[in-house]
Amino acid sequence: MSLALEMATPQDAIRSSDTALVDVVDGLLRHGVVIRGELWLTVADVDLVFLGLDLLLASPDKMRPEGITR
């Protein structure tokens, strides 16, 4: 099945409360590198242990919600 295509302008995205567009704006506001890892320990097709790791690498300035003010 073909993909549905949704296009929006930056002005639409900034004003929108649609989750997808809010995510886009948040993505532009946040700068950093996210490393995400998952480890599954499985025996005889039975999932026994799950380990999840989310690690955010960013400068302290970028970690602050509103950035730095000096």
């Binding site: 099945m1 073909s2 993909l3 549905a4 295509l5 949704e6 296009m7 929006a8 302008t9 930056p10 639409d12 995205a13 997808a20 567009l21 886009v24």
Partner: peptide, 10 residues
Amino acid sequence: GPPDMRLCVT
């Protein structure tokens, strides 16, 4: 793609 997959471009 699956029916619920969409391409979003801003």
